[in-house]
Design a protein around this nucleic acid. Structure first.
Length: 589
DNA sequence: ACAGACCGCGCC
DNA sequence: AAAGGGCGCGGTCTGT
């Protein structure tokens, strides 16, 4: 069922057949929310939305949930990346909004010319020719289904599209629900750490003491602990030559001021990133509400905008406490990336190890004389592209004992080094190297037909590609190619791990919907009996009424199994997602 | 005054 | 001991 929103509460709905063909005439809906509500409860269709992140909030706001959707903007980004074109989901969403004449979601402006012209792009021309938006969306949908069918693995790609679309629905719901946040507990932790509040712009007591200690370590000269350059200069004047002030570099100097300096930086960071100012801006009514951006990371991981939601310090997590009568069910996937590597590579020996509770211990027992640390540093090094140091020896052992797993990584690295593209298990494709994208952009400007009218002109953002940027230029071609190799090497694993996690979320979300009793009130606090309230790469938190705790635990376990069966049917690899019922997030670890 | 680069570190 | 993947953020510093 296709739904197109006009932005004023009205919209159009149209029944579509399996291939995206129209099964009925479009119907105008003066109240699109009411129309969707009726159809959702009667048929529970897969909705086709232009951009769920833009369209869905108005539904959630009035207590409506839909079970499934196909998100045209996210899918367009996946398909364009598959064909080797640049772009990010948010940028594609922005492009879509522009061609529809809708408010453009906030994003860094990007030239439309970085994307391949498709029906998605020519919609603007249709729009100006008086073609109805719903007809554009219907054509885009049908075209996307055809393009999915032409991929190497349409089934896998279809899973990816479904999981990604479900992620968009969930992101909207989670931003609305918010993460329970107890300001009184937060206060207590901050006061414990900092010794008091900052008054009149001065440092809190503990930070002031530490600053004094640092100053005492550099007599006769001044040092600003907040400024790396100033710290560097102070050490230099004290006869200690270092080229950065990374904590491990400082520790090596053995200088007496180092402990105070490290303590200062640690506390100062908590104060500035997640202190009282942060809370005033981000916590409201006992809830922390970040903006989630599914697939905001090129690997398919989620990103957030504002609030530092994916970097909440561990020592503050005690402030995340369930409401009275509720519990938090916290679950994180242990050793997810190595398990993903084992499953996707089909390496029999590694898969056997990944069938065990502790993968690293199993590897250690098999190949490292029981030295777990060695097994771990070796495998992490293999996935990140580390070649030297402590990882060198374990890497050689891994290559010998688990050749298929290591071969997958090394092939990905070589492909990247030579400028090629790699794909995750379900078919997410890494962005092209910056130079290739720039070359393509130049080519396409020559096609120019005005699709990008109104776009700011200019080149690609310098941060467009992970290996881009001025430092990459200075490092030279060889280093740049190696960096690209490390990126593609990691992409296949990180991207597939993100797919497994997205599949878990999609499955869990539906199970929790079955469990939840939704009311039609706009007051979210009592809307759902079990609601996902946080997700961070391989960890999730469900807020649930206490009487549903056991059911939530079962739902999480079932969702993990469902995701594993969808991505890796029959694999001996175990994907652990162990739920813990707790009052606070801190207990869930 | 504002923008952007750089730095260091929080999280995975 | 400190090489190697992905982010977001707040601070300083530099350039305009």
């Amino acid at each position: 069922m296709l739904a197109v929103f006009d932005g004023d509460g009205s919209g159009s709905l149209q029944h579509l057949g399996p291939a995206g063909a129209a099964h009925a005439e479009p119907e105008r809906a003066p109240d699109v929310t009411a129309a969707i509500r009726a159809t959702e409860s009667a048929e529970g269709p897969r909705w086709v939305f232009e951009d769920a992140m833009a369209d869905y909030p108005s539904l959630v706001l009035v207590g409506l949930r839909v079970r499934r959707c196909h998100d045209l903007a996210l899918t367009e980004a996946l398909l364009q990346a598959y064909d080797g074109y640049a772009g990010s989901p948010r940028r594609v969403a922005a492009a879509y909004a522009r061609l529809r004449g809708l408010p453009v979601p906030e994003d860094r402006p990007v030239p439309l010319r970085t994307t391949q012209p498709t029906l998605f792009d020519v919609g603007r021309a249709n729009h100006t020719a008086g073609v109805e938006p719903i007809e554009v969306a219907r054509d885009v949908y049908a075209e996307q289904l055809r393009r999915i069918a032409r991929t190497d693995s349409p089934h896998a790609f279809g899973l990816l599209v479904a999981a990604e679309s479900a992620s968009a629905l969930l992101a909207v719901e989670m931003s609305r629900a918010g993460l329970p946040w107890r300001s009184d507990v937060h206060d207590r932790i901050l006061l414990d750490l900092l010794g008091g509040r900052a008054l009149h712009g001065a440092r809190p007591p503990r930070l002031a003491e530490l600053a004094d200690e640092i100053a005492a370590g550099f007599p006769g000269t001044s040092v600003n602990p907040d400024s790396p350059a100033s710290v560097l200069a102070a050490f230099s004047r004290a006869g200690v030559v270092i080229d950065s002030t990374h904590s491990w570099v400082l520790r090596q100097t053995g200088h007496p001021a180092v402990p105070a300096l490290l303590a200062y930086r640690e506390l100062s960071r908590i104060l500035s990133a997640h202190g009282w100012a942060w809370r005033a801006e981000w916590v409201d009514g006992g809830r922390f509400r970040p903006d989630y951006i599914p697939a905001g990371v090129v690997s398919g991981r989620w990103a957030t905008r504002g609030g530092g939601a994916l970097q909440i310090p561990r020592r503050l997590r005690a402030a995340v406490v369930a409401d009275p009568g509720h519990v938090l069910v916290v679950a994180d996937a242990g050793q997810l990336e190595p398990r993903v590597l084992a499953a996707m590579s089909g390496d029999p020996a590694m898969a056997r190890a990944a069938g065990k509770e502790d993968l690293y211990a199993a590897l250690a027992a098999e190949a490292f004389g029981g030295d777990r640390a060695k097994a771990k540093v070796g495998l992490l090094g293999a996935m990140y592209g580390q070649t030297g140091g402590q990882a060198a020896a374990p890497l050689a052992t891994l290559r010998q004992r688990y050749p298929r797993a290591l071969d997958l990584l090394e092939r990905a690295a070589r492909t990247g080094e030579s400028g090629g593209l790699v794909r995750s298990h379900l078919g997410r494709t890494c962005p092209p190297p910056a130079t290739a994208a720039a070359a393509r952009q130049v080519d396409e400007v020559d096609l120019g037909d005005g699709v990008g009218v109104g776009e700011p002109v200019g080149g690609l953002p310098s941060d467009y590609s992970p290996e881009g940027g001025s430092d990459a230029v200075e490092r030279g071609v060889g280093a740049r190619a190696r960096a690209r190799g490390r990126f593609t090497r990691n992409f296949v694993v990180q991207g597939t791990a993100a797919e497994w996690a997205a599949a878990v979320l999609a499955a869990l979300r539906l199970r929790l919907m079955d469990l939840a009793v939704l009311t039609e009130t706009a007051n979210d606090r009592h809307e759902a009996t079990a609601q996902l309230v946080f997700f961070q790469h391989d960890e999730l938190v469900v807020h649930a009424a206490r009487e549903h705790a056991d059911a939530v635990v079962d739902a999480i376990l079932a969702a993990a199994q469902e995701a594993s069966d969808l991505l890796f049917p029959g694999t001996p690899v175990r994907f652990l997602l162990r739920p813990v019922v707790a009052q606070s997030w801190a207990e869930g670890h």
